[in-house]
């Protein structure tokens, strides 16, 4: 890896400040806990899906900036340790359109039961928990 060319500090200008909420993906989104509308934990943000452009394709001047289309969650532990990332088909999408707020947690505006991300929990609730004695009713 070659040494990076240094940009002279005097050439670095003050950045324009967007009027709304500013989010740095690593700082504010990745690895954050997602809570549903009732405050129930859903999953964590493992990756972010953007609309266009195609990787390594030349971007025409004046092209519209990409937007976040979905937050992704999935089995990333192995790839975090050994490198790479799981194939897109293994990642579960949570559309950005259901995100209600970004704070110390990412708040969703829907119930977790309506999301694919909570299928493991639903499957365990329906197939494993009822077989445990006392698992079919509320605790006394």
């Amino acid at each position: 890896m070659s040494k990076a060319k240094r940009i002279h500090p005097l050439k670095i200008r003050p950045a324009p400040r967007p009027a709304g909420l500013v989010l740095d993906a690593q700082l504010h989104l990745l690895d954050r806990q997602m809570l549903d509308v009732d405050g129930v934990p859903v999953s964590t943000v493992d990756d972010v899906e953007l609309s266009g452009p195609e990787p390594d394709e030349r971007i025409p001047e004046g092209a519209e900036a990409p937007v976040i289309s979905a937050l992704l969650t999935g089995p990333v532990l192995g790839t975090r340790i050994f490198g790479g990332r799981p194939p897109s088909s293994r990642l579960i999408r949570i559309p950005w359109s259901v995100v209600a707020g970004v704070d110390t947690v990412v708040k969703l505006g829907v119930r977790s039961d309506s999301l694919d991300a909570s299928w493991v929990e639903r499957w365990l609730r329906h197939h494993v928990i009822p077989r445990i004695p006392g698992g079919r009713h509320d605790p006394h």
């Binding site: 967007p18 909420l21 500013v22 989010l23 993906a25 900036a65 937007v67 707020g101 505006g109």
Partner: peptide, 21 residues
Amino acid sequence: SDVRFAVDASPGQLLSKARMV
């Protein structure tokens, strides 16, 4: 090292589009 986004529209019940800055 990071990718910056901005949510420009006024906050409502759900967030509006987050465009890449």
